[in-house]
Simulated assay, not measured.
Amino acid sequence: MHMTDPLPLPPAVALSRRLAVASLVGLIALGLAWELWLAPLRPGGSWLVLKVVPLCLPLAGLLRNRMYTYRWVSLLVWLYFTEGVVRGASDRGLSALLAWIEVALCLVLFAACVLHVKKRLKAKT
């Protein structure tokens, strides 16, 4: 190992990082597919696809393992959770199913971010 190589992450930190990145990418993919093809509000796509833009911003920070990003994503995700619950309860058919998938991805993302921050802080002590 070279002096510039980063230290390997503890297993729990590495797992939480993979879960956070995977669930964030899942939310981005779901938002795009939902609003453009699967169940758009209008044929040909919906302006609601723009809801994906804020999710793209933290992706680089998570991939670079920036602690600050994990912290603020754990707050941002509640906006998408709320949208999922509202649309899951009010929409019908495929759109309702997609909304509940959004809720599940949000819960995984939140739990992964909290676990990541907790385990990284513990590893420093």
Rank of each mutant, 00 (worst) to 15 (best):
D5N: 11
P6F: 10
L7G: 01
L7Y: 05
L9C: 05
P10A: 15
P11S: 09
P11F: 10
A12E: 10
V13N: 01
V13L: 09
V13H: 04
A14P: 02
A14F: 08
S16Y: 08
R17M: 04
L19V: 05
L19G: 08
L19M: 14
V21I: 15
A22S: 15
A22D: 01
S23E: 06
S23Q: 07
S23T: 05
L24F: 05
V25P: 09
G26E: 02
L27C: 03
A29P: 04
L30R: 00
L30P: 00
G31M: 03
G31D: 02
G31L: 02
L32K: 07
E35L: 02
E35N: 15
L36F: 09
W37T: 00
A39K: 02
A39N: 07
P40S: 06
P40I: 06
G44Y: 09
G44W: 04
G44I: 01
G45D: 03
W47P: 10
L48S: 14
L48E: 11
L50H: 01
K51P: 01
V52M: 13
V52A: 14
V53Q: 08
V53E: 06
V53L: 15
L55V: 03
P58E: 04
L59H: 12
L59N: 09
A60R: 14
A60H: 07
G61E: 03
G61A: 10
L63E: 06
R64N: 11
R64A: 15
Y68A: 10
T69P: 05
T69Q: 04
T69W: 13
W72P: 01
W72G: 08
V73P: 03
S74A: 15
L75H: 03
L76N: 00
L79A: 14
L79I: 10
L79T: 07
L79Y: 12
L79R: 05
Y80Q: 02
Y80S: 06
F81K: 00
T82I: 14
E83M: 13
G84E: 03
G84S: 11
V86P: 04
R87K: 11
G88L: 09
G88S: 04
A89P: 01
A89Q: 13
G93V: 05
G93F: 06
S95T: 01
S95N: 03
A96S: 15
A96L: 02
L98Y: 08
A99Y: 09
I101K: 05
E102K: 04
V103F: 11
A104K: 13
L105P: 00
C106E: 01
C106Q: 06
C106T: 01
C106H: 04
V108L: 10
F110S: 06
A111H: 08
A111Y: 10
A111S: 15
A112W: 08
A112D: 00
A112P: 05
C113A: 10
C113I: 08
C113H: 07
